[in-house]
Amino acid sequence: MVKGKVTIGKVLIFILLLVLGLAAILPLYWMVATAIQHPTLTMQFPPEWIPSNPTLNNFRSFFTRPHVWNWTLNSIVVATSVTVLQVFLAALAGYTFAKKRFFGDQFLFWLYVGSMMVPDQVTLIPLYLLMSKLGFLDSYKGLILPGLAGPFGVFLMKQHMSTLPSELLDAARIDGCGEWGIFQRVVLPLSKPGIAVLAIFTFVGQWNAFIWPLIVTSSSAMRTLPVGLALLQEEVPMQFALLMAGATYAAIPMVIVFLSFQRYFLEGVTVGALKG
């Protein structure tokens, strides 16, 4: 199978792929098209594939809804803090599992890996009760803390850091570097690609997280964007132009993140063998 030769068969396959690809992102296109359509025109037959008279009014009315800026801020705060803290915790623990032998290491690592098989939904109820006992319901603490507990990051970092040459660490040790110094000055810089993958996946995952933020928050001002949108949809059912404007607004940051860090996404899927 020689690559690079252009044949009629390959051109046809290419066209077929383009059609399939378009079909896959058609719903996203339809979201944007509805978002810039006049609300009254969305309720008419036949629909316009390309809005003849686009408007930004739907975005305007979306932003006049209460708490939209709070939702945005909450999403940014939660996704950013979980990402930063998770990367730090996971890098430290992953490095330890990858490069250090100590009493109980096998058992502890097994505990982390085994936990990856536990569906998150199992911890929902006890986590909720725990948060209520700690007084963290409906707060940033409640939104952020469970995001730091997942075992996946540690596993990913361990897999990545196992590939670092141990000789380099030994050399640093001989040069008189302390344990913390080795981690900070040798391990972290060498692990940048792995850290990037973990950071991106954590950020996107947190930005899009739904069930936990839905449960742990109860004031409108504490909602994250996806939860705010889902509840807005209950409040103003059928106002699709407005809802699609909100959906577009919430989707755009992630599409930008994806287009800028595409490589890491595709790499991350293979490295971590992520779900779905």
């Binding site: 992102i25 996203l28 739904f210 964007l225 809802l243 959906a247 992630m254 779905g276």
Partner: peptide
Amino acid sequence: FYMPHVTSAVIISMIWLW
């Protein structure tokens, strides 16, 4: 084909509801 994965399931569901 990966693109829809970075969009929240809420958003995808709202689009399909429409």
